[in-house]
Design a binder for these strands. Structure first.
Lengths: 121, 121
DNA sequence: TGCACACATGAACAGTTCTTCAGGTGTGGT
DNA sequence: ACCACACCTGAAGAACTGTTCATGTGTGCA
């Protein structure tokens, strides 16, 4: 029995590790879902919105538009994606809608990511 | 003095919070850099590669290609981006190159992100 | 030296993404 | 009732992204 259909010829010693990497804890579907989460954080406009909310706690769309220096339309589109994903939530007060971070884990990710700046310069 | 050039008409009570959100800790440039980091994690293939490395510690390209079920060429392209960003590093051994996570913060982010799965279902 | 394997790289193409523009909803003031 | 404001939404176009295909580099083996 020679090598299988896929991958490199050396399979005996690494098969166990490959299996471990594939089966344990994070399934392909889960990794894809987490990638989706990271993808939402991986846009300059959305990231700046989120960090602004992390600092300020709660801001309306026009304040966000002002803080991030992006058109209110673009902010609205960005917030819709974040809202749909449950990352932010809005609260209407008069004509304004105040947005806040709505996911504790995302808050932790944002906090933790700031540490990255100090090291990588 | 009426409202400024930008944003909503209500500016007095929120000006301080907007300023805080803009000035404190995370600058626009930093947020953009962090977005770039998240963007790299925000692709299914790259995310699966990273979680595989998180589990297995060290894997060669063909093992990764097998584990993630993506062509070795696609893996190579993905690894190049991650390598350039300092997220992974390669070690040559014979004809194979073994990759590993090279950034402690990214490792933390990946670990922390897994918690997200438990809550959001 | 020659071949096979593991991996890298460049070009090209399909799919996706983000912004802007134009128009729509809902709320408050007069 | 009307208008202005804060915000939302759909369509459209430019820019970007990720994969595949074809080819190139480097290592080990005979």
């Amino acid at each position: 029995m020679v090598a299988g259909l896929h991958g490199c010829a050396v399979q005996e010693p690494d098969a166990a590790r490959v299996a471990a990497a594939r089966d344990r804890l994070v399934t392909p579907e889960e990794a894809t879902r987490l990638a989706e989460l990271f993808r939402l954080l991986g846009d300059p406009t959305r990231a700046r919105l989120l960090y602004a909310l992390l600092e300020a706690g709660e801001l309306c769309v026009c304040d966000l538009s002002d803080a991030v220096e992006v058109s209110d339309t673009a902010v609205s589109h960005a917030l819709r994606l974040l809202r749909t994903a449950g990352i932010v939530a809005g609260r209407r007060s008069g004509r304004m809608i105040y947005y806040r971070l709505a996911d504790a884990h995302v808050r932790l990710l944002l906090d933790l990511s700031r540490e990255h700046l100090k090291e990588t310069g």
